[in-house]
């Protein structure tokens, strides 16, 4: 049973994380995942029996195994969405550098008396 849960969960984590973007929704989702991880972690420490009970329901031998699976999916999601954020940051930096470069070149052309020929 756990197989049928894990495989779609991993796929969903990858797709959701890559689609998260810097949108408010994406940011909120990241925060929810992070917060939930903490809360669930605390509960798992205080009431280890709950973990075992869930593990029994989904067909995993031990509660700790179940925890590892869940953490793996959380990590996949966080790594994916972080890389998306990183790429967005990179794209902003690219556009900024381009504008700086073009402005500097234009100023230099004008200073040299080479009229930048506009169509």
């Amino acid at each position: 049973m756990i197989k049928f849960l894990l495989v779609p969960a991993v796929a969903l984590a990858v797709v959701l994380s890559l689609r998260s973007r810097a949108s408010l929704r994406g940011q909120a989702r990241r925060k929810l995942v992070a917060g939930l991880t903490v809360v669930v972690g605390v509960f798992a420490v205080i009431f280890p029996d709950i973990l075992q009970a869930i593990a029994d329901v989904v067909g995993v031998d031990r509660g700790t195994d179940f925890l590892v699976y869940v953490l793996a999916i959380v990590i996949i999601y966080l790594v994916g969405s972080t890389s998306v954020r990183f790429r967005e940051q990179e794209s902003r930096l690219t556009r900024l550098s381009r504008q700086v470069a073009l402005a500097e070149a234009e100023a230099r052309l004008v200073a040299q008396g080479r009229q930048p020929g506009r169509p």
Partner: peptide, 17 residues
């Protein structure tokens, strides 16, 4: 005509510029 990126962006970035 020289256009200088302040930092290295990669070839695609340079082509677009």
């Amino acid at each position: 005509i020289r256009v200088s990126h302040p930092i290295n962006l990669g070839q695609g970035g340079a082509l677009q510029t």
